[in-house]
Amino acid sequence: MKKKILHKHPLVIRWFHWLNFPILALMIWSGLLIYWANDVYKISFGQTLVFHFFPENFYKTFNISFHLAEGMSWHFALMWLFFINGILYVAYTLISGEWRYLLPDKNSFKEAWQVLLHDLHIRKFHPTQIKYNGAQKIAYTLIIVMGVGSIVSGLAIYKPVQFNWAMNVCGGYGNARGIHFILTIGYVLFFLVHIVQVIRAGWNNFQAMVTGFEIFKSTKAEQHEES
């Protein structure tokens, strides 16, 4: 018996994706160990404190306090893996032509809006797509831009004199730390939305990130799940 499959994720992209997951997770963890030593960021409304990054019980739960040296040693080791993995991923998408599926075009923003309406159950119709819909294209491209931002702002904090161009791009040393922090919060938010969407999209979509292909249930099913 023959089944129809959709070749979705090339092998190397699957490797880059799954390697990035623990690397980024550990970068965020070690980054928190560093951030704790000067945890100055907060959201406040006028004089009223809305949220302090981070409350004491958060530090306690994740055993973050008093691990600055440990955080730095992990952060400055894993930065290489994060950087190399990211560079190779971008290089691969460019050389293989995979970027064509990933880079948003002028239709993507309209499409992303339609996807959002669909996902919020406001609209039945889901736009047809090749591999990724408009919302995904925007999200997966934005995350690369964020990665570049983390590297540039990270360099600005790590070597503010030798990489003074990076510090100037960030608008100073203090701003570089702020940007580095906000981008990290961005990764966490991305991760949460990503997980929800992967669960919603179902098993066939998820297993494609491991096997590389989606399997059609029957040959007449032309429409496949979103991812």
Partner: peptide, 15 residues
């Protein structure tokens, strides 16, 4: 179908 280039019929066992 915009995905036709990416689609293939494959033996179920091999899948």
């Amino acid at each position: 179908n915009p995905n036709s280039k990416l689609e293939e019929f494959v033996d179920a066992k091999s899948i």
